[in-house]
Design a protein around this nucleic acid. Structure first.
Lengths: 150, 150
DNA sequence: CTTGAAAAAAAGTGCCC
DNA sequence: GGGCACTTTTTTTCAAG
């Protein structure tokens, strides 16, 4: 993992639609050398996957909300059970077990408030291990990067 | 935006490294028709961009933390000023203005705790408009999807 | 062991119906 | 939306640093 590998990764994290020739040119390598590096990085799992990022508003699901959840029973098994239930929901785009005042934080992508209400019924209100949950509706998305600096 | 468009988008959101021929085959279209649809979706901005998603641990930056921030002055200008400052930090991967108990939620991707401490100095402690901030360190990532269901 | 060049294979592109 | 000729890109192979 040298300077050129990092350069390739940084370029691909922002735009993976470049052809191999364009990428090779951008990093100052021959197409064959560049392709070999990319294949190596994919095989090693450093590049996990190549995906299309949609424009949220143009693809529906523009409503985002963050929910912090406090469980009654904090044990590992209870935590896992709740996370599994949350992950099964397609409106849940991110689910984290965290330290601090709460146990779980969820990122929701919703069509409308009705969908949110129905989701709350399923995973918060009907779930008898949830002590409290706080909803933060996203008003403004100032940054939403998939890239990680390396 | 018909059923086939949605099928294309869903496939590409999970794997955009398919060739046009493979994609056409998966949705049951001829390569030329399929390519036309993909180009239309890109031009319309429904597909915002194609990016590489890295394996966090294999690319460094494996430490994730969520921070909720409460500002002293809640006005639009103050909110924007704080968000701009936060977005300028490369460790900040997501930044949202939200409703609820707090004003801002940040997702941090860090190398280590030292980096976190330095970041806190810059955007929380030296920033005299921050009333309180709560840190939730991510212990477990149960889900981290870039795809949105359509 | 990595790089570059050139060939072959495969894919993307644009125009026709 | 599908079919076909044309162009570009990917991928393999092989020689050189």
């Amino acid at each position: 993992m040298d300077r050129i590998d990092r350069k390739i990764l940084n370029l691909m994290q922002h735009d993976a639609s470049r052809t191999n020739v364009q990428l090779a040119d951008a990093v100052g390598l021959s197409p064959s050398s560049c392709l070999r590096r990319v294949q190596r990085l994919r095989k090693a799992g450093v590049i996990d996957r190549i995906v299309a990022i949609l424009h949220p508003a143009k693809a529906g699901r523009s409503l985002k909300a963050l929910v912090t959840v406090e469980l009654k029973l904090h044990g590992e098994a209870h935590m896992r059970r709740f996370l599994e239930k949350a992950c099964a929901e397609e409106a849940v785009s991110q689910a984290y077990g965290v330290t601090g005042e709460t146990d779980v934080v969820l990122m929701l992508r919703l069509r409308d408030m009705e969908e949110f209400d129905a989701l709350c019924d399923r995973i918060f209100r009907d779930e008898n291990n949830v002590a409290r949950f706080f909803t933060m509706v996203v008003i403004r998305t100032a940054k939403d990067e998939t890239a990680i600096r390396i």
